[in-house]
């Protein structure tokens, strides 16, 4: 089993809430991603067993949504919004800045497996642009100084 006992328990608990078990697919994938950072065939199979839904349904859903990486990523997944409101306030140059600071290009992971940098669509933070999401947290109204501090902070925590 790749999923921990705790995850399995959480998934079962979620599945029990819904009138139909199938509704637990997204919550299950979310729980799996929280534990593993990504999902794959083995995880689909485990989820399908836990919530008793054909495995293909889990795989179909998992690949439809963007929040379930299909391969391991760095410890911190940096997602920069590149959509219009953020772009008007410099999202593209923010990405460039991060690339330069991290020494990688968009889509890559730092050699120490600490950071993965990607750009994503609007994250609903338009009036506090530019912004990025790192794992589950939002960082808004970004400036160069803030970005420096955030990276520093995460590095020191790692």
């Amino acid at each position: 089993m790749m999923l921990s006992e705790e995850s399995v328990k959480a998934i079962k608990e979620r599945a029990g809430r819904y009138p139909h078990r199938k509704s637990a697919i997204l919550p299950a994938l979310t729980i799996a991603c929280r534990q593993l950072g990504y999902v794959d065939e083995t995880v689909y199979r485990e989820i399908s067993k836990i919530i008793r839904i054909p495995m293909v349904e889990v795989a179909e859903a998992a690949t439809f949504y963007t929040m379930f990486p299909k391969a391991p990523r760095g410890k911190y997944l940096i997602q920069v919004c590149h959509n219009i409101s953020c772009a008007l306030l410099g999202a593209d140059s923010l990405i460039g800045y991060l690339e330069q600071k991290l020494g990688i290009t968009k889509g890559e992971t730092t050699p120490d497996d600490l950071f993965t940098l990607i750009s994503v669509e609007c994250l609903g933070s338009c009036a506090t642009a530019p912004m990025m999401q790192i794992n589950e947290d939002y960082y808004e109204n970004l400036t160069r100084q803030k970005v420096d501090d955030i990276l520093q902070d995460l590095r020191s925590k790692a």
Binding site: L26, A61, F68
Partner: peptide, 28 residues
């Protein structure tokens, strides 16, 4: 009440896609 979180798909704001998504389907 059930608080349900999506998986990352703008289309799931469209009400019929939202319902599919809530049922565990692809958000079509």
């Amino acid at each position: 009440i059930i608080v349900h979180s999506g998986g990352g798909a703008y289309i799931c704001g469209e009400e019929r896609a939202l319902l599919n998504s809530l049922e565990g389907e692809r958000g079509m």
